[in-house]
Amino acid sequence: MIRTENLTKTYGGLLAVNDLNLDIAQGEFFAFLGPNGAGKTTSIKLLTGLLKPSSGRAVICGHDIQTEPVEARRGISYVPDFPFLYDKLDPLEFMLLVGQLYGMERPEILRDSEELFDTFDLNGARQQLIENLSHGTRQRVALAAALLHNPRVLIIDEPMVGLDPRSARVVKNVLKQRSRAGMTVFLSTHVLNIAEELADRIGILNHGRLIAVGTKDELRRQSGHDGALEDAFLTLTRTEQEIAASR
């Protein structure tokens, strides 16, 4: 579903993403981890076609995102950490707009929106303009809109920011459930226990390079830690100074 081949992006002299090779299957829940500035957001922007790679390519749903962007994007939904929403629309109006932009018919949008509003507990917010909603509620509206057209791939950046524990639990359940139903989820996060709890496989990016990829157990083995994912992550992303100091 998501395949990258030697995907590289440079910003002037800075190598933001270096030779990224990924192969994520249909229905897989893939968590993308990395310290601040590791290149996670740049990688996501390359996958969604928001940025052109310096070299290499990204293939989504069988279509190269650069040469067949429209076909590739038909199957993707992207939810950034601060999603764009029209402030003066209410959630249902926004769903209608997004659904129609993805070529859905109005009755179908209304039916699926009802279901998503129930799932994300948005019925209390449906009459209000988006500008009056809290950050967490806006985040849930954005997620509902992203899932409306049943994407084959969901790319999501820091989905739990601003969500209360109940909403976070709902989002986790929905993502897991959709993933089991065949949707590929590519989730970028700093929160290690979310990755630990949800992901089938985890990729760790550091200084633009994919330094480790595998299941939780594989990462633990690779790092030499049997405990929490946090220890494995910290070991794998150690700086040279930290390595030298530990010696």
Binding site: I76, F84, G103
Partner: peptide, 14 residues
């Protein structure tokens, strides 16, 4: 604009 970024992720030619 954030709106332009959002539009560029839609299945619409740039």
């Amino acid at each position: 604009s954030q709106e332009t970024q959002w539009m560029l992720t839609l299945p619409v030619p740039a």
